[in-house]
Design a protein around this nucleic acid. Structure first.
Lengths: 114, 114
DNA sequence: CTAAAACGATACGGACCCGAAACAAGGGCT
DNA sequence: AGCCCTTGTTTCGGGTCCGTATCGTTTTAG
């Protein structure tokens, strides 16, 4: 299932996709926030603050604040873990799924245009 | 030359690439800065502040500040246009070319691993 | 039952970036 | 020369995000 990309094509793809995202959303999502969003929606749950911090190699407050922002946008929800009250489970939302899908479509469109 | 990407694969690719970039550089390059860097290195010169502002749909000060940052990192240089002293030509550097190439390699590596 | 550890959220000081407006410098035209 | 337009930079007030350290809650170990 590996994708064969020659370096020049890969860079072009990334270039156009980045450009499209910057134009589309201004500054709505930073690189980190996008990484968190996609990780939550593409990797099987459950997702915790600690786990996200580990996979992104950042500190926990970064994740907390990013989740605050993503929560305000309606892209994720936080629920306390019923079996271990210390954990917080990050839940997906319809809005967030739509946004992730939108990003995927954008990349597909860019790929077609190259 | 079009790349055929199914949405799920495209999202996975973008997800892994974003994750790798976040892990690699922490917060060195924002989405806008990366868009500027790639644009300068992938589109034939000359590049001006005004032109970049138009292609990114942002204001000129944004470009000026981003070029300040990219300049401090050694990724671009600014030279006044000899024929029209109002323009500033953005020049490439060896360091910047290496960094762009590094990003390309990273995406290729991610594509192979999926 | 008490002490230590784990997890997430918050306080704080500092750094960065934003957009609008004002500013300097260059060029074109009469 | 004088005026006006273009180009890029800087200033200003405001907002966001960072990392470290600390706090509150919950769980686990002794």
């Amino acid at each position: 299932m590996a994708i064969e990309l020659r370096p020049a094509i890969a860079l072009d793809l990334w270039h156009e996709a980045t450009l499209a995202l910057v134009r589309l959303e201004g500054h709505d999502l930073s690189l980190r926030q996008m990484a968190i969003l996609l990780h939550v929606y593409l990797v099987p749950p459950p997702h915790t603050v600690r786990g996200l911090a580990a996979t992104l190699c950042v500190t926990k407050p970064v994740i907390t604040r990013a989740l605050d922002t993503l929560g305000e946008m309606g892209f994720v929800t936080r629920v306390r873990d019923p079996v271990d009250g210390r954990n917080v489970i990050i839940k997906r939302t319809v809005e967030g799924a739509l946004h992730a899908e939108r990003i995927g479509d954008l990349i597909v469109a860019v790929g077609k245009r190259i």
